[in-house]
Simulated assay, not measured.
Amino acid sequence: MDRLTATRVFVTVVEQGSLTQAAERLDMSTAMVSRYLAAMEAWLGARLLHRTTRRLSLTEAGQSALASCRQLLDLSEDVAHQAGAARREPSGRLRITCSPSFAEAQLAPALIDFQRLHPQVAFSLTVADRSVDLAAEGIDLAVRITNSLEPTLITRPLGLCRSVLCASPGYLAERGRPETLQALQAHRCLAHAFVSAAQYRFRHAGQIVELPITDVLSTNDAAVLRRAVLAGGGLAILPTYFVGEDLRSGRLIGLLPDYEPEPLGVHAVFLSRQHQPLALRLLVDFLAERFGGDTPPWDRVS
């Protein structure tokens, strides 16, 4: 049997979570999928999947093999992409999801700039402060800001999300500027319900430090949190991609520079690398170049 096809079958089974769904996606019979899996295990000399009537799970050998198999498929896709991309113009509609704050501050302008390069590409952008089910909602690409990703999803790092503890000048004039971590507990702490509720997390001297807080306001929307801080409601941890201009203009003041809120990764997330539209491949490359680097563009001092 063709080993490249067997590799693709193995990766698709892992991504889909069942032989039946993988067979549907690959337009194969379930029996053929089973034969390819058996061939993979025979070639590698190890069992790759635990199979029960209810679920599949990777063995230790399967977990080790998965990354290499994905690299092999990436390489084969890259060869085909490079051979044909020069002769094709990307087109079609891509369905994308992202958090509201990142979509407003960074992703929407990036998509418009991408369309200037490729005017035949259209976008449907869904903003949500939750992890959207890509398969159920027909999403081509999710941009997620997190340090915890599901291992079955395909991801590519795009950049780094740094945050800052900040407050308005008016609030600091009224309540004083905290000079120590412990002093924060005497202040009005505002929090993002999904990120910093119940505690603030900082990186200090190479260690993660957690400070329990009692928030006076929490919200699931970074824009609401920013507005509350600008209004003098208290101090909060906010991403620099969203409040960079506020910090540079003096509308917000960064606090405790020796205590950096824990950075998060910005990731492109999609279901599969197989048969990706050219527009999607080019968009992910574009976003990786735009948002990448040791210092994210929103943190660079021009």
Rank of each mutant, 00 (worst) to 15 (best):
R8D: 02
V13S: 02
P178W: 07
T30S: 13
T155I: 00
A186V: 09
R227Q: 13
T219M: 07
D74G: 00
E15D: 06
R188H: 09
A222P: 03
C161Y: 01
E77T: 05
R188T: 04
R3V: 09
S272F: 01
L271R: 02
L158H: 03
I145G: 04
A128D: 14
Q207E: 14
Q71N: 05
G234R: 03
A103K: 07
S218H: 08
E262F: 07
G62L: 07
D258E: 04
H275Q: 13
S101V: 06
G250Q: 05
H118L: 11
T155L: 00
D133W: 07
A142W: 00
A103S: 11
I96K: 02
Y36N: 15
L73C: 05
Q106R: 14
S163A: 10
A191T: 08
S99R: 05
Y36L: 14
I112R: 10
F102D: 05
L94R: 06
A223W: 12
L66D: 04
E137F: 14
A288P: 01
R88A: 10
A61W: 06
R35M: 15
R87G: 02
A228H: 10
T155Q: 01
A42T: 13
E41A: 14
L278V: 07
P239V: 12
L141I: 02
S34N: 11
L56C: 01
L271Y: 00
G45R: 11
A31R: 15
R3W: 13
L165M: 10
H50P: 07
T126E: 14
A193M: 07
S68E: 13
A231R: 11
A38C: 12
T146V: 05
L235N: 11
F102P: 03
L238T: 13
L125F: 14
V216H: 08
E150Y: 01
V243P: 11
R188F: 01
T146E: 08
S34F: 08
W43V: 12
M32F: 05
Y36P: 10
D74L: 01
P90A: 13
S68Y: 10
T97S: 09
V229K: 01
S99M: 06
E260Q: 14
T5N: 06
L211A: 09
Q63T: 15
Q207I: 04
A83F: 02
A39P: 01
A39S: 12
R54S: 14
A31M: 12
A186D: 14
T126F: 09
Q21E: 10
N220H: 15
P297E: 12
